[in-house]
Design a protein around this nucleic acid. Structure first.
Lengths: 159, 159
DNA sequence: CTTGGTGCAAAACTTTTGCACGGAG
DNA sequence: CTCCGTGCAAAAGTTTTGCACCAAG
């Protein structure tokens, strides 16, 4: 897809007004990447103190509808928004919280299988793939060895 | 994993009390499958009118911690809960909302690749795979042909 | 001018939490 | 008898909505 400028173009083309608020929200997302509505709000407010969070939500909803930004639901906490680029996903480590971009190619076979076998057009866009990264995995295994045999579950593994 | 009885066993084994509320929540989930907390609440209330939704949430959180139920975040609306069974996922059609179970095998290659290439242990458990089912896909294409050339987007594609 | 977009305030919706009482073990 | 689990009520966190005014086209 595109950068802020092209995004603004698209907005105009489709008949929406170009307001400072919309421009600011767009550039906040472009610079920030993976921001929550609240964070976008914070960033925009630095440049234009009077913006309301409702406007941010409305703008994000609009941009999402136009497929200019992507919304990702991380399960807990607020949704996060990102400028649409070429299709990709994210690895999200439950240990350290780090997110790593993940090329879409890995999902092609799955998408194909679903289409051929079930006639299902999977969107599989911008998925958060939860798990444990190599670094945290190593740590976890060490910790596990340390308390080997305890096991009552009460403590619970990272959910 | 298991049915309600075994689940109750597990609860007791790990040292939690067996209360009517917990039994009712469990059997509601077993019978209902894919229920929201509110729906579980509704079902349980039919048999025990005094239960509180807070109890439902607390019980669901407990069962989730013990891995007896799985929580799925569908992005909009409330989380949905399901009794844990063998690993599987769901196709969720954005058109008709229908959900179809999906065998986990399809995800094995992806999981393997992530492990080997990046050392990332992907959880990929009980994923909602959004998309358009064959039935709705056909309808959509027909509708599109009907209004071919209009295109202002305003209407918006199914989000 | 006209209508769409904004700010403000309030509501909606889902989920969590504090507290005191009652029942399971 | 002890303390875990519950009901009740209130709060918290995120997102949506009604309304009057303002500004983009």
């Amino acid at each position: 897809m595109a950068g802020t400028k092209q995004a603004l173009e698209s907005l105009k083309e489709v008949g929406y007004r170009l307001t400072p608020q919309r421009m600011l929200v767009l550039s906040a997302i472009q610079e920030g990447g993976h921001l929550s509505a609240e964070e976008v709000y914070g960033r925009v407010k630095e440049e234009y103190a009077f913006i309301d969070i409702a406007t941010v939500y409305r703008t994000l909803a609009l941009l999402k509808r136009l497929r200019l930004v992507t919304e990702t639901e991380l399960g807990d906490g607020p949704a996060r928004y990102e400028l649409s680029t070429e299709p990709h996903h994210h690895l999200v480590c439950r240990g350290c919280g780090e997110t790593t971009p993940l090329n879409d190619d890995l999902f092609a076979p799955l998408r194909l299988t679903l289409r051929e076998r079930l006639g299902f057009e999977a969107e599989l866009e911008h998925l958060p793939v939860f798990g444990i990264c190599s670094r945290c995995g190593a740590q976890g295994r060490r910790a596990e060895r340390r308390r080997a045999g305890v096991a009552t579950e009460r403590a619970g593994t990272a959910q």
